[in-house]
Design a protein around this nucleic acid. Structure first.
Lengths: 120, 120
DNA sequence: ATGGCAGTTCGACAATACTGGAAATATCAT
DNA sequence: ATGATATTTCCAGTATTGTCGAACTGCCAT
């Protein structure tokens, strides 16, 4: 789910972000960094009913933009920076004029994770 | 319509691109460059019924991603590179880790327009 | 003015997405 | 085992989006 973006994957990711709640949610997770946030904390922060939030979390997960890990009773969600890189990469490569719009600099977490879970 | 992107504008643009036909359409216009393409030519290229295409063109126009100009009987559509820059800019600034994901290089048309219509 | 070409708007229908309460599932503490 | 907590899944209703033929509008040539 971290490889090169094709058109279908891109459409999935764009659709996932193209919603008020989900864009806010994704931005929140990006800010939260590699530690991520528990579903409950997200629901509090965004003031969205539990079941609706779950729906949006599933949508973003399906698109590969966020990842889920369990930590005791809580489910922790965190942004997948590699996926975001892939999306931005696709857009700049295929939807800009062909001129180099961006070099291969990558999206990075804001701060180091406390529990190291960086992909190899 | 060419200024800085806020969340609402971003959602509009993401939603506009998050569809098979519209993403293909936008990519086509990006390839076509500043000269753009007539609606009929687009319909031929993508093999979409006229009225459906019109719907998608309107959608992309509403989102400010493409522009329309009349040339006698034909309506010419062309990609708005500045808008694409704005979108990618918003994503990298708000949805990446905060680390500089891309410097201020911009999306540019592939080749010079034959009829010069470059914004100041 | 008439006719024809380019494209849009209308309208009706099908499909998909979103919302939120209620019931179910998983985990932990006692 | 029992109960509390965290979150998901189910369900039903509502809203939005997409599709395409048919009718319409704008522009040009004669």
């Amino acid at each position: 789910m971290t490889d090169r973006f094709n058109a279908d994957r891109t459409i999935l990711a764009l659709g996932a972000l193209a919603h008020e709640n989900r864009l806010a949610l994704f931005r929140l997770l990006v800010q939260a960094g590699a530690d991520g946030m528990a579903a409950g904390a997200i629901a509090d922060a965004l003031d969205i009913p539990n079941s609706s939030l779950s729906f949006h979390l599933a949508h973003l997960t399906r698109a590969g933009l966020i990842r889920q890990t369990r930590q005791s009773r809580s489910l922790i969600y965190s942004a997948d920076y590699a996926a975001m890189n892939g999306l931005v990469g696709y857009l700049t490569e295929n939807c800009c004029g062909g001129a180099a719009c961006l070099p291969d600099m990558t999206c990075e977490p804001v701060h180091e994770p406390s529990i190291s879970r960086q992909r190899a």
